[in-house]
């Protein structure tokens, strides 16, 4: 049985992969943003596990900063989704093709 922070790193890996699949395979912007939140949480878990592994506190401090950045990104992303929905009445990325991207 590996030690607790090592298990934490394995779980953060699995969560990150799950979030990545969510971003790759969903076409709705809301689901993509939710999957991005899962990825950010996985990164936070990796930071905390690393700080527990080396008996330092730096990882927990960095986790706060990552959390603040995730909050800002979620706020602005949702504001963009709202104004996109007003313009195009749809939040699927397949319908946002003006730039032929």
């Amino acid at each position: 049985m590996p030690s607790l922070p090592e298990l934490g790193i394995y779980f953060s890996l699995l969560l990150f992969i799950t979030g990545l699949f969510g971003v790759m395979f969903r076409k709705n912007l809301i689901f993509m943003m939710l999957s991005v939140e899962v990825m950010l949480n996985a990164a936070n878990l990796a930071f905390i596990s690393a700080s527990s592994m080396t008996n330092t506190i730096d990882g927990q401090v960095i986790m706060f900063f990552v959390m603040a950045v995730a909050a800002c990104e979620a706020g602005i992303g949702l504001a963009l989704i709202i104004s996109l929905y007003r313009a195009k009445s749809s939040v699927e990325i397949d319908d946002l093709r003006i730039l032929r991207g």
């Binding site: 878990l45 905390i48 527990s52 927990q60």
Partner: peptide
């Protein structure tokens, strides 16, 4: 995940995770 933080010894991060996220 907040529970996992608590078990890893990061109590403040666990509570902050629930409050913020």
């Amino acid at each position: 995940i907040a529970g996992m933080y608590g078990l890893l010894g990061a109590h403040f991060s666990a509570v902050a995770q629930i409050i913020v996220y």
